[in-house]
Nucleic acid binder design. Structure first.
Lengths: 219, 219
DNA sequence: TAGATTGTTAATCGATTAACAATC
DNA sequence: TAGATTGTTAATCGATTAACAATC
């Protein structure tokens, strides 16, 4: 584990790794601008981040994908498997609506949609439909903003439908880069990268002795 | 609506409003350092943000809470109620585990907990328990990281139990400032503030004509 | 008045990006 | 070689914070 990496760099390293794993069957090497393109960031960013973890590429072939995947693991992973738990994530929609009601904002949770549910339910005044009804409901209710948290495979398909139905902004939790027209505002929150960042910093705390001394010396 | 506010300012304005609403019954005015303290940020930040939306305080009394709540609404809200929908937020735990498995990280989703469920289920290899079993499971499985997305009232109580059981880091979706010992790493993601930011920028797009001209002139 | 707070500018800090020498 | 890419420094950009005159 490398101590004292910037927060944002740790997040990106997590994103690099996921992108690299997804293409590791097809390719052996990748250039900084290709990897940057996959994440929609600047190539200099990629090179700088890899510099920080001390990973070197080949001037012609670029970076060795398998080696880089391992190297990122060495840089940010703990030396044992850390466990994660989720508490009550399903309740988020209703909570947010409650906040909206309290804070006097001009926002309203008009509906929630579930992937595996067929019947329509009404929970605390917020209707919960099957996703198959999404287009109809968006149009009928003029829903403008979508909070999207579905499996990667479904994400783009559902986003496309929602945009066609009139959605203007998406808060995207689905860890997939969504293609969308420029006038659609998209805010990506990558929960996987965030948890990995969290894990890194809890580890760092764990290896405090080394890390803190290094920090002080650098300053 | 005020155009060209920085993203972070819009997010904080949403947080200010929520904090102000929560105390508007008890107090009439608030000083910048009190409001800053509620959000754990710098007082200069508060004053600067309010300056950007042109809100003026009294040099002795501070800011009028009710007026400020209205003023924030005028600055960031749309002139009609925008609707929001949620798709499949309940699936997040399992998705994240799938990503972990694929990307070769040293992380594992050990359990998910639900507030309203009593029986233990097993979905795609991830066990889903009642929250009442949380402490036991965290200890038994040595869970280190918790993704917490429960209603505000429960959040602190559940966090306390989890920390006592050995949790080291929390990704907090519950829009509540969690009190915790310094060695617990906490990452807050405020979904309410994020959706309000999103709404602001979709509105801005909507009022493009004015906004873009202003932008160009400023540059 | 003395003391405290606002409004605002300037300084600082960190993150992003441009640029380019070194390299093959 | 000519051309392309890396590794790294310097410049830029934006966000945060310190500082302080103005005010009551």
């Amino acid at each position: 584990m490398i101590n004292n990496l910037p927060q944002k760099t740790v997040e990106r390293l997590s994103l690099y790794r996921r992108a690299l794993v997804s293409i590791s069957d097809e390719k052996e090497n990748i250039h900084s601008h290709r990897l940057a393109h996959m994440l929609k960031i600047n190539p200099a960013h990629v090179r700088r981040d890899l510099m920080l973890i001390g990973f070197q590429g080949d001037i012609h072939k670029g970076y060795d994908i398998k080696e880089l995947i391992d190297y990122i693991g060495k840089a940010i992973d703990c030396n044992y498997t850390q466990k994660v738990a989720f508490v009550g994530i399903g309740e988020i929609g209703r909570q947010v609506e409650r906040h909206f009601e309290l804070s006097g904002t001009k926002l309203k949770v008009a509906a929630t949609f579930k992937l595996e549910e067929d019947r329509t339910r009404n929970v605390d005044g917020v209707k919960c439909y099957s996703v198959s009804k999404m287009v109809t409901v968006i149009k009928k209710e003029n829903v403008e903003i979508l909070v999207l948290a579905v499996p990667p495979k479904e994400a783009q398909k559902i986003a496309d439908k929602a945009i066609a139905a009139g959605i203007k902004g998406i808060l995207n939790f689905s860890s997939v880069y969504l293609k969308a027209p420029k006038n659609i505002y998209i805010d990506n929150f990558d929960i996987v990268a965030t948890v990995e960042k969290l894990a890194y910093f809890t580890n760092k705390e764990f290896c405090k002795t080394e890390g803190d001394e290094l920090k002080k010396e650098t300053k």
